[in-house]
Each structure stands twice: as C-alpha cells, then as structure tokens.
Write a protein that binds this DNA or RNA. Structure first.
Lengths: 213, 213, 213, 213
DNA sequence: GATGAATGAGCGTTCATTCAT
DNA sequence: TATGAATGAACGCTCATTCAT
C-alpha cells in the first residue's frame, strides 16, 4: 500500500495522460483522413473508445484539439530547426538545404508512424498528406525562411514573393513525396533545394520592381 | 409601335438576371471568405436579401453554384490560354512567361471587379484570394504547364515535382500580389517567370535523381 | 364579328373550361399514381402545361381539387344509383346486386378512360386503383347499402357491422378486379353479390349480440 | 452489500426506457391520427417534450420507428397465430373463427392500453384504429387466411377475391368494434366468422366464374 | 386571367456541446 | 473524472401559396 510518487504517475494520472494521447492520436488520424471541416468530434472520440463527454475534459472544442496537434509538431520540430539556424549562421544556402532536409524528414516520419499503426489490409479511406502537425512544422520552416530571406543583404527582389515561392515549393514537393513509395526524403530535398536556390539566384536585381515591400 | 427585343428586357427578366448575379456575387464572396466546406447556402442567400427558397430557383445545390462560378472563370480564360499555347508552340520559356502574365492579370481583374462592387467602408471580414473562378483558371494553367513540362524533350528531373513546384509558385505569388496595393501584375509575372525558369534550369540532370517516377 | 352566345362559349370561357378540365384530368392522374399525400400541386400543374399560379385561379388548394374530383364522380354516379334504388324498392337482394354492378362498371370505366388517354409504351409509374372519384362513388354505394340494411325489417344482427362488411367486400373486390386484364365487371359483381348475400343470410339472429347499435 | 441486478435500474436507464416508450407511444398516436405520410418526426417528439435531436438517439428515422411499432405487434401476435394454425390443422372453419377472435382481442387490447395512458378529458383529435402494430397483426392474419384459402381442396371460386374479401371484412369489423363502448370482441368475432364462412359457402362452384386467375 | 419567380414555414437530419448521473 | 443521453441551433432542401407583372 505504500506508494512514493515523485511525479504524478498514479493510476489516475496515467489514465489522464493515456486518454489525452489517445484523443490526439485519433484526432491526427481523423483530420488526416477527412480534413478539418469534414471531421467531427464524434469521429475522433469513437476511435478512442472513450465517451463523447470525455473529449471535453481534455479539449474545449474541435478547434482546440487541432491546435494542440499543431503545437505538438511545433514543439518537437522547433529545437531541430533552431539548431540548424545556429549551425548555418551566415550561410544561407546551407540553411535552406538543411532546413528542407529536416522538414521532409519530419513529415515523412510523421506520415510513416501514423500509417504504420494501422492494422494492414484494414479497409480505410484515402489519407491526406496534411495533418495539423505537418502544417505547423511547415509554418516554422516558412517563418525561418522568411527571416533568412528578408535579413539577407544584397540585391534581391521582393522578399515576400521570394519567401512565398520557396514555401510553396517546399509544401508541394513534400506532398508529392508522401504520395510515392518508397518515400525518398533525400530526393525531395535535393530537388527542392536546387529549385529554390537556382530560382532565387536568377531573380532580377531591382528591389523597385513594383512588388509589395 | 415597332419594337425589336434582342434581349429579354421586361422587369421580370431584369430581376431574374439581377438575382442570378446577386447570388453569384454573394457565393463568390462567401466561398472566398469561408471556403467551400464552411460556406452554407444560407450564408449566400442571406447576403442577397432573398428568401431561402429562392436560391433553389437558380441553382439546384451549393455544389452547382460553385461549379457555375468555376465554369464562368474557365469559360472566360480558356480561349486566352489556348491562344498563348498556339503562339508559343515550341518556345517553352515564352509560354511560361505569357501564361503567367495572363493568369495574374485574370485574377487581378477578378479580384478588382468583385471588391469594387462592395460599398466602401462596410465592415467585412478579410477575403481570401481564392474563389471558384480563380481556382478554375489556376487549374487550367496547371494543366497546360504540366503538359508543357512533361512534353519537353531533354534531360530534366522528375516532371511531377517540377510541375507541382511551378504551379505552387504561381499560386502563392498570385495570392501575395492581391494582398498589396497597387496590384502589380507585371511585377508578379516577372518574378514568377524568373523564379520558375531559373529554378528549372538549375535542376540536376539525371532523371534518376531519386524523385518518384 | 357578330356573335350570339346563349351560353358562355366565348374564347375566354372556353379556355377557362378547358383549363379547369385539364387541371382535373391531371389531378386525377397524379392522385391515382402517387396518392394524395405524395402528390404535389407542382406535379399536377406540370402535367397541364399551365403555370403554377394558374392552379390557384381554379382551386384554392390541393385539398379543394381533390374534393372537386370526388364531387365530379358523385355527380355522375348519383342519378344511376338513385334509379336503381327506385327500381328495386323492397327487393333488397336485387338492390345489392345492381348497385354492385353499377359500382364495378363505374370504376372500370373510370380506370379505362384514364389509362387510355396515356400514349402507349410511355414509361409511367404503377397506378393505384383509387382516385377521388372512385372513392366518392364508393362512398355513395356505402351510404345506400347502410340505409338499405338499416331500414330492412327482420331478424338481422348489427347493421353497422353488416354495412361495414359489405362495403369492405365491394372495395376489395373492386381493387382486385382492376388489377387484372381483361377487367371483368360481371365476374366481380357475381362474386361480391354472392359473398355479401350469403354472408348476410347466415348471420346469427340476435340483434342483442352486444354489438354496437 | 451483495447486489444482484437483473435489470439495469439506474436512473439513467430508467429515463432511457421511459423515453423510448414515450417516443413509441407518441409515434403510435401520431401515426394513428395523421397517417404515416402526414406524420412528421417533429410531431412525434413534440408530444414527448423531448428535444428534436433526441428522437435520433432512439430511432434512426421516421421509417425505423414505424417499423419498430409494427415489429412489436408482430412479435407479440406471431406465436399466438402460429399456435392456432397448429391446433386447427385441417379444420378450416375452426381456424378462421379462432384467428378472428385472436385478432380482435389483440387490437382491442392495443387500443385500450394506449387510450388508457392518456390523461382523461384532455382535448385530442379522434384517433384511427390503425397503427403500425395493428396493421402488422392484420397482415399476419391476412397471410394465414390466404394460405388457408388457397390450400383448401375443393370447388371454390377465385382465391384472390376470397382472401381479399375475408380480410376486408375482418379489418372493417375490427375498426367498427373499436369505435363503440364497451368493446365487444366476442360479438365482433361471431359476426365476422359467420359473415365470412357463410359468404364463402354460398359462392358459385365454378372456378371459371370470371374472376381473375 | 395567366404567368412564374419569390416566399418562408417546415421537413428530416446532423452534430458540437452540456450536464445529470 | 467518465459517461452518454439530451439538447437545440443549424443544415440542405421542398413545396403550397402569393403577387407583381
């Protein structure tokens, strides 16, 4: 009967953590399969085996569980990206290359973990590449790129267009990558890096091109 | 006493045309603001001041009014794009440049016409660049680009990644362009053209680059 | 230009009469095919080629056109039944027999006229036997039978049950008759008459059987 | 401390059972008053005092609650009828008599239970005898009669007319019976049995009587 | 009188959220 | 805290009826 708990690891707390994780997992699946709009809270809790009301003990709304997933992705990816920025200080090209590599690896992992959990051969609907987590990570890469581009001295055109373009390339290549077996993160990173760096290199030098500042 | 009516000009016909336009306009706004899933038929008709049932005198469903908007865009843009393809046969770079110009001009027009119709200073939520019409036009450009890229002889990397990237750049640059005054279609086209053509030029030459087949 | 009209037969009146008839015909068809609940006013007017609003120049509601059809049947059948009652005064069995014959002939005619008007081989839904008109005629026969039964001197059981039974037999046999080709009104009348008269003959003699009075 | 629960007795379970019954009762009333087509789900739930959505916690659709009522009747009456058929094998007249008795008793019970549940003197519209339950029971009797008639050796006229007539008599007599106090099932059964058996006996002997085959 | 678009109450149904147990 | 039935606003859509033309 004696129990010394240095951390909240009693039965109750374990259950709480487990339930929270179960909801998150289910939500990731459901959002991935159905998209945010089509997915319902019922879809999520049905997959956990918990009761409908229990959902609201953990998240106040469908929106909040979505945000929590995104947070989770950001929390795991944030340090990685920060390290890359530190290592590549001053070397723009190296930063772009390594950030893209990390991004593609993250979303490939995410996708793989999640699809791996399903029993094989079970009937299931087509699965979208985007989940809140991959979206959040994408947003982090985008912000980092925007800062890197905006902060770069030199002769380049409008940084808004530049960042938007780089981001767009990364997102699209990432989605295509996930659609093919085997998932080839190196190939995707090579392609996107070349496309982005060469594209940026060739841009007109005038920042007064009329593009928004 | 002589009266030659080239068009239906009775009051009834006028209101009919007006109502149809009002519904289309409202639908464009609502889809732009909320997206297809979130938008409801009631959102659309509420904005017209018409009664709920009246919507269904003009369109059989939410899907149909969406398709009508997309059709409209495609119908207006299709011939333009076809002419460009004919004129630039064989000249890939010229095709890319002119297709992008035409695309940016189209969405700029669309956006302007539509925002111009609103009473100024009326409170309204931020409006996304994407409407069914611009989406349809965008899809046409995408298809044309994919064909152009896939059909190009030579040593290039995976056309799936290439087309996806070009398209993504066009879309993102287009959205950023619309967010700033004055809307500078020339600047956007210059930027996107350079980004895409230079990006493509610098790609690794081996089709075995690891990209999906 | 001279026109001597003893009756309202001007163009206007003709159209009015024609429209009224067209609506009645269409309503008979539609009620027969779909039943009162499922049938819509739109179904009726669509079949006339008239405009929706025109319906309401002739009948105030779906209910009213239904009643008008019933009236029409009653108006045509009433004199026939009255004549039979006069001729068979005092002869209960003859009255039953001839009333049933007249009833089966009426509904067979009605059914035939109406199905005959359709172009052959045109696809159409299954058609119910009952229309407001046949229902009305049925009601007249029922009332006559109830009176005849109630008014008969003698030893019989409860007239409410008796009338209900006779009526039920007539209705059911009538419906089955219409379902078979060739429509055999004589056979139906023979059967129903025998069933009813023999059934009535064998009834227990006590009017105090506890049945409602 | 020992507690053996044979039935769920928590408050929740009680309300659930109560609600289910309330919905069934309301549905029986509404279908009886308005008929299946005219009745709406809202009519049903309004009468229970429950919220609109609650209906769908118990039944998936209007159709399903109707089927549940019919099932209920059939489930209760089926064994009774089966026993009668077994006991009367070969004795057609006994079968008819006892089947009719059982039928009239069933619908009388049904009617009584249901009207008893209403608060007395509350204003309410007249209620038809037919509910899904009585309809289902009636259908069972009909099927049994049709088989008995069709399977009987001998010289009789068309079984289609015969079965239809017997059934019609049973139905109509049943409805009249319910309309009068006190409800006299014995009187109704005596009457219907005599009417049917005598009616059948007196039928013309030739199967070529002109009735449809 | 004929027209047919406009109306709006009402339909069956869904679903995020609440709350008594 | 977990439960799951209850809630009720909102959905897409239908249709009897009205009314300006």
């Amino acid at each position: 009967m004696s129990q010394v708990a240095y951390l909240p690891v009693g039965k109750r707390e374990q259950t709480k953590v487990q339930n929270r994780l179960a909801i998150l997992d289910a939500a990731r699946e459901v959002f991935g399969e159905l998209g945010y709009e089509t997915a319902t809270v019922r879809d999520i809790i049905r997959r956990t085996g918990l009761a409908a009301g229990t959902f609201y003990n953990y998240y106040r709304s469908k929106e909040e569980v979505f945000a929590a997933l995104a947070d989770d992705g950001a929390r795991r990816f944030g340090p990685i990206l920060k390290a890359i920025r530190a290592q590549c200080a001053g070397d723009f090209e190296a930063f772009i290359r390594r950030a893209l590599e990390a991004y593609f690896e993250f979303i490939a992992d995410e996708h793989q973990n999640w699809t791996a959990r399903r029993p094989p051969d079970e009937p299931h609907v087509h699965i979208q590449g985007e989940t809140p987590e991959t979206t959040a990570v994408f947003n982090e890469v985008r912000d980092a790129m925007q800062q890197a581009i905006a902060g770069r001295g030199g002769h380049l055109s409008d940084p808004v267009f530049m960042a938007a373009s780089c981001i767009a390339v990364a997102r699209e290549v990432g989605e295509r990558m996930l659609e093919h077996r085997p998932v080839d993160t190196k190939g995707a990173a090579d392609f996107a890096t070349a496309m982005i760096l060469n594209g940026l290199k060739g841009l007109p030098k005038s920042p007064e091109s009329g593009a928004p500042g």
